[in-house]
């Protein structure tokens, strides 16, 4: 393989370095395109699979206001999936291909959604911490180099802020509620805190795609930097709730101006990624089942559309 960059590649990198956005019809290196499709589609799949752990609580939301809020929130996630599939499709790959990759396991989605939501408290922590961690990442991606991806991110970030707040509000109610509610909140925080930190991915030193993604400005901040931001911002939020921080090694580091955190259980991280989470199989089979059950509906649409076209042609 030729290791010297071609003129096209140099011009491309110059655009990136000058903060010009790359748009769909522009020339781009095959690796950039591949990397983007991988990242955006993984992101899209995460939004869509992420509907499940919260979606099954819509029917049990304990007040009508919560029911409406949760439904609107989960529906937004479907919308985010749509925006992101739409961004991926600008690169000439179809949604059908992307869905196929998800269902056959070639494409990944955020591993956090393989954790079960067992209690109503989890609907609080998922909104607060999982959406919170996602927002850290998405805010930085508003400056990503690919135009359609950046624009989707801007749109998504606008909608996300309500997601995190509604989650935190659930936690506030639980934390000041009955003893059972408060322990529900603590238990949920304990279960979701570490997996939320894992959402930022492996340490920069271990991350397979990081260097290239940074050079192409597909990613704008590293995993560890984003994780640090999240750790720092979460401390006062936990404090305000009056809950115990799950990280017993957490300590303020005056010199760095950040919290030093305990080490993540990377074995668990890889374990869940490799299919051993509580819900890995369930999430995919749910998606496959809905998709297959929808096949006759999509078929009917196509058939109807064909009939109408034929009718119009006859009339003309």
């Amino acid at each position: 393989m030729n290791s010297l960059p071609s003129d096209l590649e140099r011009a491309f990198q110059a655009k990136i370095d000058n903060e010009y956005k790359i748009e769909p019809k522009d020339w781009m290196p095959a690796g950039y395109r591949k990397n983007l499709i991988r990242q955006i589609s993984q992101h899209a799949h995460s939004e869509v699979i992420g509907m499940q752990p919260e979606g099954h609580w819509i029917t049990r939301a304990p007040s009508l206001r919560r029911k409406a809020v949760l439904l609107a929130k989960v529906q937004d996630e479907a919308g985010h999936g749509l925006y992101l599939y739409s961004a991926t499709e600008t690169m000439g790959i179809t949604r059908a291909e992307l869905i196929d990759a998800l269902q056959t396991g070639q494409a990944k989605y955020a591993s956090i959604f393989n954790y079960p939501t067992q209690t109503w408290g989890d609907i609080g922590t998922v909104g607060w911490l999982v959406d919170g961690a996602a927002i850290c990442n998405q805010v930085s991606l508003q400056r990503t180099s690919y135009g359609p991806y950046a624009r989707s991110m801007i749109r998504i970030c606008k909608e996300e802020s309500f997601h995190q707040r509604q989650g935190y509000q659930i936690m506030m109610e639980l934390a000041k509620g009955t003893p059972e509610q408060k322990s529900m909140a603590q238990d949920s925080l304990n279960r979701f805190y570490w997996p939320s930190l894992m959402m930022f991915g492996p340490h920069d030193s271990e991350s397979a795609h990081s260097a290239k993604s940074m050079k192409w400005k597909i990613k704008r901040e590293t995993n560890d930097d984003l994780r640090q931001k999240f750790i720092d911002q979460t401390v006062p939020q936990i404090e305000f709730l009056g809950l115990e921080h799950p990280d017993k090694d957490l300590k303020w580091n005056e010199e760095r101006g950040h919290y030093d955190a305990g080490e993540i259980d990377w074995e668990e991280f890889h374990n869940v990624i490799n299919g051993n989470g509580h819900c890995n199989r369930q999430r995919i089979s749910h998606h496959v089942a809905a998709h297959e059950e929808g096949a006759w509906v999509r078929d009917a649409q196509n058939a109807y559309n064909a009939k109408m076209k034929a009718r119009r042609a006859e009339a003309a």
Partner: peptide
């Protein structure tokens, strides 16, 4: 397995 032939708008 997947099928998606609706048009893109």
């Amino acid at each position: 397995m997947s099928l998606e032939n609706l048009e893109l708008f």
